[in-house]
Design a protein around this nucleic acid. Sequence first.
DNA 1: ATTCCAGCCATTGTATACGCTTTTCGGTCC
DNA 2: GGACCGAAAAGCGTATACAATGGCTGGAAT
Lengths: 246, 246
Amino acid sequence: MNQRQFVAEGKSSDGGGRSGKNGDGTKRHEAIYQSISDAIIEHRLKPGARLREDALAEVFGVSRTGIRKILQRLALEHLVTLTPRRGASVTRPTADEAKDVFDARLMVECGLMPEIARRITDEDAIALRDMAMRERQALRAGEQSTAIRLSADFHTRLASISGNATLAGFVEGLCSRSSLILAVYGNAGHLGCESHDHDDLIGYLEAGNGERAEAFMGRHLKAIEASLSIHVEEDEAPDLFEIFSG
Amino acid sequence: MNQRQFVAEGKSSDGGGRSGKNGDGTKRHEAIYQSISDAIIEHRLKPGARLREDALAEVFGVSRTGIRKILQRLALEHLVTLTPRRGASVTRPTADEAKDVFDARLMVECGLMPEIARRITDEDAIALRDMAMRERQALRAGEQSTAIRLSADFHTRLASISGNATLAGFVEGLCSRSSLILAVYGNAGHLGCESHDHDDLIGYLEAGNGERAEAFMGRHLKAIEASLSIHVEEDEAPDLFEIFSG
DNA sequence: ATTCCAGCCATTGTATACGCTTTTCGGTCC
DNA sequence: GGACCGAAAAGCGTATACAATGGCTGGAAT
């Protein structure tokens, strides 16, 4: 069960110890952030998993300082939860949070459709079709991690076509969190955006039919949300107050 | 020009130096974050102002470590810009960014209106009217800082009534950035949400007229955006390539 | 046998130290 | 007189050290 799943990079080239102290550390940290973020989104790190600073520092060959920075960024994006003296763990979204995230996606992604239909280029459509195809392939091959990741990438890429970097960034965060929600509330075998939904959507957008794309995206997201089994699990904090208040 | 505008808190009670090492540091950092954030939103720290880690650490009586954490959080919220070896400075929003932010506000804040009209309570309305009143007072008294802050608070509070914490948080960030945009592109004397717009809006919401509130909010935000003078200042990076390419 | 308490250990929070890069200031050369 | 180059200083990036807290385990008492 050793989590050697991370690429530790060839740190043997460092010689020994703390030689290359300030060697383009920024990019290094960005790569580590991506590694952890990907592992969470692809469910290789499941909700509730503890993320110990020492362990991560050793795995990636950097000091705890850098890991802490990354963990705090992930916490701000709601991908990990930082409990004051307990450290970091992968966020386990609540039912309320899941509803909020999907409501937000419904509003923003649908609202973006008309503008996207106006601005989409041929290259965009080609890239999107490629992603949709790879997603179907991954699903058929049983690679759920890859499929989930590609689905999130599809929606993120789509939003970026709108040209609004702020909204695109927001959608990106929403998609990441949706991946976490799928990990907790998703039914195995029925996950993510199946069938040819994404292909159909590209068709509407290429035709410049923003309204139809908007309606379709609405149904698409509602279908995903409806496929979740949101059992309000009250494992921790069994609501003693409520139980004994009557 | 000493920036002693920050409350340095009574650190004399500490005795001398590094005595209270781990005394509820979390809350302390939260307070420092609020101080800096407020100073930026209220334009006491203007866009472009440099935020040196050493200086901030000394002013607030903590070490650079804590300041760095706060600065990184502010950077993620687009309130400060972190240039790799230069340190932090208050973000100077570009024209594109300003457009993105206001487009995002238009979509999200308007989209939230129907739900807010459905859920608004009497206490909400009272609190909102109070904020609107204080904002008008501040404007009349010439306290622009306070007025800007109250205007952002009003919109933020409004969004929180929707019950969607994710969207409310997004709107909060958008309002903070709007304050920065006003600092750069706003015309003095004509700033922020003037007149009785906010009061009118509360009226529509109390009447449960979500559609009318939505339309009104749309006009309100468009009016603010239109009042900006977005001169595409190309001071830095004088586009040498474009100039000499012809 | 179970529960409570105490001490230890694991792990985070904070500060400080050090190296590297960038900037700025002063001197010299053209 | 101006421009270029070198050195010093200032400030950021990273690592490491230390302190404190919370959980966990072992033991004892009921």
